[in-house]
Amino acid sequence: MSLQKPLMRGLLAKRLRFHLSIAFSVSIAAAIAFKYTVTEPRKQAYADFYKQYDAAKEFKAMREAGIFESVRPSGE
């Protein structure tokens, strides 16, 4: 009784098809996970921050703190 020879013809294509489908699935899952765990909360945090942000008030506070060299504080 002899052992059957291994099937070599088409082996690369068969293995590539299997591994590429797994790699594609994992990359799509990673992209979706990144979108919902990183980018969506970040967009929401920016939206919440700018809902209450007052640029004029912030400018006035920085001007009075002396951060700007070209703008005098309002008290002088």
Score class of each variant (00 low, 15 high):
residue 42 R to A: 11
residue 10 G to F: 13
residue 36 Y to W: 12
residue 46 Y to H: 10
residue 2 S to A: 13
residue 5 K to A: 15
residue 17 R to M: 09
residue 1 M to C: 09
residue 7 L to I: 11
residue 23 A to T: 02
residue 72 R to G: 05
residue 30 A to L: 14
residue 73 P to W: 08
residue 65 A to P: 00
residue 46 Y to N: 10
residue 52 Q to C: 06
residue 24 F to V: 13
residue 60 K to A: 04
residue 58 E to M: 10
residue 3 L to Q: 14
residue 39 T to K: 12
residue 9 R to P: 00
residue 44 Q to S: 06
residue 62 M to F: 12
residue 60 K to C: 04
residue 26 V to H: 04
residue 2 S to E: 14
residue 63 R to C: 01
residue 63 R to W: 01
residue 47 A to Q: 12
residue 58 E to Y: 04
residue 53 Y to M: 07
residue 14 K to R: 14
residue 69 E to K: 14
residue 50 Y to G: 00
residue 41 P to D: 03
residue 15 R to H: 03
residue 36 Y to F: 15
residue 33 A to W: 07
residue 11 L to E: 06
residue 32 I to W: 05
residue 71 V to P: 01
residue 7 L to V: 13
residue 70 S to P: 00
residue 66 G to M: 13
residue 41 P to Y: 03
residue 34 F to W: 10
residue 59 F to G: 05
residue 46 Y to P: 00
residue 25 S to E: 07
residue 43 K to Q: 12
residue 71 V to S: 02
residue 8 M to I: 06
residue 12 L to A: 09
residue 26 V to Y: 01
residue 11 L to V: 12
residue 75 G to Q: 04
residue 29 A to C: 07
residue 23 A to D: 08
residue 8 M to P: 00
residue 34 F to D: 07
residue 43 K to H: 05
residue 14 K to L: 15
residue 74 S to W: 11
residue 40 E to D: 14
residue 57 K to V: 13
